[in-house]
Computed example of a mutant assay.
Amino acid sequence: MTSVNASKNPTSYYRDLGDGRWESTRAAQGAWNDHEQHMAPVTGLLTRALLRHEPRPGLRLARIGCEILGLIPAGEFTITTTTLRPGRTIELVQAEMIANGRPVVRVTGWRLATTDSAAVAGLTVPPLPGPDEAKPYSMTEKWGGGFIESLTGRVLPDHAPGRGRVWLTTDLSLVEGEEPTALEHLVGMADAANGVATRVHPAGGWVFPNVDLQLHLFREPAGRWLGLDVSVDFGPDGVGVTSTVLHDEDGPFGRSLQILTLREVPGADQPTP
């Protein structure tokens, strides 16, 4: 039987039970269903697992690819890690979350060798105005669940259905009693991008969960605030994409993509986005 740490005021998203066993707290609760975990903190925890699996000096995570294999139940689960493709300058590692006897999320990470490329470094997008230049913003106006409630947000002007720019942070730790790395902390909020600038209201006639999360990181992030410059596109045949430029307070550090499955809910009224 799966147990759930249901404390009303958790200080972390997860508790380490030892021997590869973990337990989610209410803060990890998903936005679509009360009995599932949100993919955002799951991403942070599995990134933590990748970082701690046979670490290699001189290599860093440059791509984190998350495949959501089904509903992610709240409560207890295990994590296993392995090296899929060892290499001197390029390596592929994997972490898998297993709940109730089945894999529910599989994450792979490409580790690439770091070199000094400052002479050719360049960006195609400008940095977002910082969180101090933005207005207070709460995702709880559209979304429920413990994870969304745990976030502090700031929104930049011209927010609209399908297009938005926000900053997010949280005071909670990823793992109870542990200070997360900046990478763990920031990627642990990245999946929230799909809820930032929804084209339709999530309580209305359509649902649009993502079935993956792909993160491409061209530099190591820093700090506590995650900036999301989000665009959402819906196609005509039940598939959509959320595309995001990821920022910290020093500027852009990567991009994320989420493929969406669009499903109409018969008989539901559509609120204003």
Rank of each mutant, 00 (worst) to 15 (best):
P161I: 11
P41S: 14
R88G: 01
L46Y: 15
D16R: 15
R88I: 03
K135Q: 15
G87W: 06
L217D: 01
V175D: 13
G101S: 05
M139R: 14
P236G: 01
P157N: 12
A6I: 12
G130F: 13
A31F: 11
V120Y: 10
E67A: 13
L174F: 05
T78D: 08
T140E: 12
T43E: 14
V230T: 08
P266S: 00
V104F: 04
E176V: 08
P271H: 09
R106D: 00
L59T: 10
P136Y: 06
R263A: 11
S3R: 14
L156D: 12
E23S: 14
L246K: 04
R199L: 08
G30Q: 09
Y13M: 12
G130E: 14
P273H: 00
N5M: 09
S231I: 03
R21Q: 15
G235K: 04
L217W: 04
P73K: 05
E220P: 01
P180I: 12
D248C: 08
R63W: 07
S150K: 06
H35D: 14
T83S: 07
E91V: 04
R111F: 09
M1F: 12
A182Y: 10
E91R: 02
F77I: 06
C66M: 13
P271E: 04
L151C: 09
I68Q: 11
D34G: 14
I68M: 11
R255V: 05
G153S: 13
G235S: 05
D229Y: 08
P157I: 15
T80W: 00
L46N: 14
P266A: 00
A95I: 00
L172D: 14
E176R: 03
T81L: 02
A31P: 10
I259E: 01
V239K: 00
T108W: 01
L260E: 10
L69T: 10
N33Y: 13
E67Q: 13
